[in-house]
Design a protein around this nucleic acid. Structure first.
Lengths: 235, 235
DNA sequence: TTTAATCGGTAACATCCGTTACCGATTGTA
DNA sequence: TACAATCGGTAACGGATGTTACCGATTAAA
């Protein structure tokens, strides 16, 4: 199975390459492509990591499993993003989280050995790889920011405003279901619904399904930056 | 000021080099060394990152600042560890967190340009750099695990058990003050004290100052893996 | 279509935990 | 020594939120 060059171009590792260059590369490099169905394991916590995966299509979920059996979603990844690149070069190269397919998807794998070869053959790829790692680190840091942003309401507003900027509109299309969103915010779904009700009643938002409209961005901003005091999370 | 080679050897970037090799390297490379006093800013959130810092002595604190002015400590770093390496190679190379000295310390700076030169001159250094990034990513991931481990009591026990393993004893010496610990757990100090009292009254721990003794590790383990309530991200 | 299954909103209740305030102990300092 | 600042324990209070349960709507499967 041959990967779509368009997808690879959107992948940070190969960004900047022309379709032609990529075609050439694909012929010269060693890789495998595997397809997965919903809920299938791609990487399992504790596995030894000896390759990275590039998502060619579909979506996957990265979760940290708790000893209790429950888990927290760390990230949702989709086409063009990579998995496993964080542990590949560690001494203790064990996969620290579970990666599962949330739907049918195609993953391209490149071994560590082959990656090293690519690095020395093409410095661009190396640079992209490092860039990718950095990007990931920053992303995870944002997650921390989110988790410690204080009360649920504040976290929600924080997220909504972020989305509004990202989508360039006051009309937001949520990228996931309520359940997933709750997970993302590290809260319980009913709690989320309750707060959604509050925000609606306050007249700040309006929503139907996964479409949320911000009616009073200013007030929401004010709410977030209202400086009550705080010890490390706020209130 | 010339850096101590012993410290640099403990730095992941230069691990594996002999003192002689390092001496040689130091003569051939470009760097600066700066000293800081308690509470002085080393990197400020929003700065443009164009160099990495290596801690030669002392301790620094990495904090995420909230728009509200409050902050969460992401990490404490000490001699041999690096700062700024995560953003140096990003497109948007702005420092995402504030770094301050928690006491007098010495930092060695290496510019991005110079780093690149080192990479091409010495592949080992490049490998260490990637390894370092990966290490950092995993560390931050653990922080997430911590933050989303549910109720405070669970988070505390989680942390204590982790420390016991790390220190190889039931007698734990806390690496920070209560205030700092509370920050680390993303909670308020009085809340922490309250729970400490609870754990003491339950007979699970015993403590005086920064020394904590685990009296019933089994019970604590059981408590953590008791699948009662979790934050709601159950699977 | 009928039957499940899943999703999302709502409500009641109990608990968690942040806030505030106070106090004693310790430490640094004038 | 005395004063101020910081740290850590404790307690009361109220708000935040996890839990459970129920219900209608939507979707998938039979």
């Amino acid at each position: 199975m041959t990967p779509d060059t368009a997808v690879l171009q959107s992948c940070l590792l190969f960004r900047g390459k022309s379709a032609e260059e990529l075609e050439l590369l694909l012929h010269k490099m060693i890789y495998t492509v595997a397809s997965y169905q919903k809920n299938m394991l791609i990487f399992s916590e504790g596995d030894t990591a000896d390759r990275i995966g590039i998502i060619l299509s579909g979506r996957v979920e990265v979760q940290k499993t708790h000893p209790t059996g429950s888990g927290v979603t760390i990230a949702h990844l989709s086409a063009g993003q990579t998995i496993g690149e964080a542990v590949l070069f560690r001494k203790e190269n064990l996969v620290p989280a579970t990666v599962t397919a949330t739907g049918p998807c195609l993953i391209m794998f490149i071994s560590k050995q082959e990656l090293l070869r690519l690095f020395s053959a093409d410095t661009d790829i190396l640079n992209r790889f490092i860039e990718n790692l950095s990007e990931r680190l920053v992303l995870v840091n944002r997650k921390i920011e989110m988790l410690s942003a204080g009360p649920l309401r504040r976290r929600m507003i924080h997220f909504l405003l972020e989305q509004a900027v990202q989508q360039g509109s006051d009309l937001i299309r949520l990228p996931f279901s309520r359940k997933e969103w709750a997970e993302h915010l590290n809260t319980a779904r009913p709690s989320l619904s309750r707060e959604m009700g509050y925000l609606r009643d306050t007249g700040w938002i309006q929503f139907k399904g996964s479409r949320i409209t911000l009616l009073d961005r200013k007030a929401m901003h004010d709410y977030i930056r209202t400086d009550s005091q705080d010890t490390g999370q706020d209130k």
